[in-house]
């Protein structure tokens, strides 16, 4: 089956969604990320892999944290980084997505990191760009956020290496969460035998069982004997209409407290993709407690994003890439007339 994320040799070409990525590729990304964890612990936190390459962070939707982690990852690979908050620039002047992208291609960008409120935006851009450019989806609508999903499974693998013997629970607003979708795909592909989702009916998409998960509407029942608890953020800004009585009411039934955490295995880890709503989905004493790995998630997120960029950025001779760009980017008449003037 044609997979736009893989090239003819089966190597990663774009990272758009975890859905449909073979286990081999997921493991390759996670194994490569192990190497980059060490790089961040050195005095000189930089390697020369992407020297001379330009990474463009195109954010049609604001996200300071995600943009910052991609920026740090690219800079630690020695790439030049350009950040575009398109929401506040050209698009508000009426430019289309593809015009924005074409302009960046003309500036010889090598990699795009794309965040957009519309599902499928990164996919759309990936289909448009020439062969030598890679696209990374940094979150598209409710669809996917693959690097977040990967960093979560990377964190799990670091604390619980035996993935084939784990019980993982995702708690909260699954309906609006692209992170949840990416995580479920990653966990099931890597062979985690039991993935649970715990949420009120109004915050679950219909047919979620088809993704191979067990559904719980009671937090206490769902947390019993789990190894990993992944809290999801209550997406206030995505909620149009009253799906919940109130934030306080939500905390009472679905907020993770020390008392409820005791129902999980004693060595269970607590995760959160951030930003946290303390006192809404998670109690402060849990977020800052000994079982919380929320800050290591952030650290590993950089290593995972470095791994993805490093896998996408190599393996193509620079000569061919430049030729391909000129060939597809500019009409030949333009090039020959330029030659004539000289």
């Amino acid at each position: 089956m044609y997979n736009p994320q893989l090239d003819a040799d089966g190597n990663l070409k774009h990272l758009l969604t975890i859905e449909g990525l073979p286990k081999r590729i997921l493991n390759q990304i996670l194994d490569t990320a192990e190497t980059f964890v060490g790089v961040a612990e050195r005095d000189i936190k930089k390697v020369p892999l992407l020297r001379g390459k330009t990474v463009c962070n195109i954010f049609f939707e604001n996200s300071t944290r995600t943009r910052t982690t991609f920026e740090i990852a690219a800079k630690r690979l020695s790439a030049d980084v350009i950040n575009l908050n398109v929401g506040t620039s050209s698009q508000s002047k009426g430019e289309t997505i593809l015009d924005t992208v074409d302009n960046l291609i003309a500036m010889h960008a090598d990699m795009f990191v794309v965040r957009h409120a519309q599902s499928g935006a990164a996919h759309f851009i990936a289909q448009h760009v020439p062969d030598n450019i890679s696209v990374i989806n940094a979150g598209d609508g409710r669809h996917a956020h693959p690097t977040q999903g990967l960093l979560d499974v990377f964190t799990i693998r670091r604390y619980k290496p035996d993935m084939h013997n784990l019980r993982v629970a995702l708690v909260g607003d699954v309906l609006h969460s692209r992170v949840a979708r990416s995580e479920i795909h990653a966990l099931t592909t890597l062979g985690v035998p039991e993935v649970r989702v715990i949420a009120p009916k109004t915050l679950l998409p219909t047919g979620i069982e088809k993704m191979g998960v067990q559904v719980f509407h009671d937090l206490k029942a769902g947390l019993k004997d789990v190894d990993v608890i992944m809290m999801l953020r209550l997406q206030n800004e995505r909620m149009n209409g009253a799906m919940l009585p109130s934030a306080q009411e939500y905390f009472k039934t679905f907020g993770l407290t020390q008392e409820k955490l005791k129902l999980a295995k004693p060595d269970a880890i607590v995760m959160h993709p951030g930003p946290m709503n303390r006192g809404v989905e998670i109690d402060s004493s849990v977020a800052d407690g000994s079982q919380s790995v929320i800050l290591p998630q952030v650290t590993y997120g950089i290593a995972v994003r470095m791994a993805v960029m490093a896998l996408l950025g190599g393996g193509q001779s620079a000569g061919t890439a430049a030729g391909g760009l000129l060939g597809s980017g500019f009409p030949s008449s333009l090039q020959s007339s330029a030659g004539g003037t000289a």
Binding site: N11, T35, R42
Partner: peptide, 24 residues
């Protein structure tokens, strides 16, 4: 050391399949 992140053939070949983390 693995040194894969410093190789001069990265642009042609990409990263090799099995990297080992460096540990100094």
């Amino acid at each position: 050391l693995d040194a894969a992140l410093y190789r001069d053939d990265y642009a042609q070949r990409g990263l090799k399949a099995e990297m080992q983390p460096s540990n100094i």
